[in-house]
């Protein structure tokens, strides 16, 4: 294992780890608030390592949803990783073995993907392991702290931190909407549908998990029909 590549990766992971620490702290508070015990919350973070996906999944667990609903929601929300994994497969060291690919793919997140993709040299296994290591620790530790110490924090602070994870979503969506008009349309349609499914009497009986799937699929398909050529790089 080349240490220099590992080090370079680990260095790139520091800001990601700090961001994850605070967001997973908010996740831990949210999970504990919904009655999930700290050990379960940490296990979810360690085995999932996703923000939006595990947040939605945890909400469904709290609501007592079926395994099928949980599986489909997780699939839909995390579908983007498929694209990132695909892009990364064109970019990584082609000599990477199947075993190494199986290992490294565990750590593909929005931020890790973005940093790895922007590396000048083709990312190899030591680099990827370095890049993943600190964010993984940050994500796990933040969850543990949020789920255990979250309830000794003043109520005001918990309330304020509750919005942190959504703030991160806004930070991912807005720049893309500024760059791309089609994306703005898709995002607006998804938000409007989501409001309809939450507030219109009959429609609001659709469980949250399905509502998110319906909004996502409808808005994305609409985007693909209206603006199929606009997206070539993601």
């Amino acid at each position: 294992m080349k240490l220099s590549d590992f080090k370079e990766g680990a260095l790139g992971g520091v800001p990601i780890a700090l961001g994850y620490l605070s967001v997973s702290f908010a996740y831990g508070i949210m999970a504990a608030g919904g009655g999930i015990d700290p050990l379960s919350a940490v296990l979810i973070s360690m085995t999932n390592l996703t923000s939006a996906g595990q947040l939605a999944g945890t909400q469904l667990i709290i609501d007592g949803a079926t395994y099928f609903q949980i599986a489909v929601t997780t699939l839909v929300i995390n579908l983007r990783y498929m694209l990132m994994s695909l892009s990364l497969s064109q970019r990584i060291d082609p000599k990477m073995s199947t075993g190494e690919r199986l290992l490294v793919s565990y750590g593909i997140t929005d931020e890790i993907f973005a940093v790895a993709y922007q590396r000048e040299k083709a990312p190899n296994t030591p680099y990827m392991l370095g890049l993943i290591s600190l964010p993984y620790v940050g994500w796990t530790l933040g969850t543990l702290l949020g789920a255990t110490a979250g309830n000794i924090l003043p109520e005001r602070l918990c309330s304020a931190l509750g919005i942190a994870i959504y703030g991160m979503f806004v930070a991912i969506v807005i720049p893309q909407c500024r760059k791309s008009h089609p994306c703005l349309v898709v995002v607006a349609v998804a938000a409007a549908l989501s409001c309809l499914l939450k507030y219109v009497p009959v429609l609001s009986s659709v469980p949250t998990g399905w509502a998110i799937i319906i909004c996502t699929v409808a808005a994305s398909v609409l985007g693909a029909v209206l603006y199929p050529e606009e997206v070539d790089e993601v």
């Binding site: 998804a190 938000a191 989501s194 409001c195 808005a219 398909v221 693909a224 029909v225 993601v234």
Partner: peptide, 21 residues
């Protein structure tokens, strides 16, 4: 078409999760 759907999906899902929740 499938590429486009996949490209829009992450932003659609984050939007639907954020608004109005």
């Amino acid at each position: 078409f499938f590429r486009s759907v996949l490209a829009y999906a992450p932003y659609a899902v984050l939007s639907a999760m954020t608004i109005p929740h």
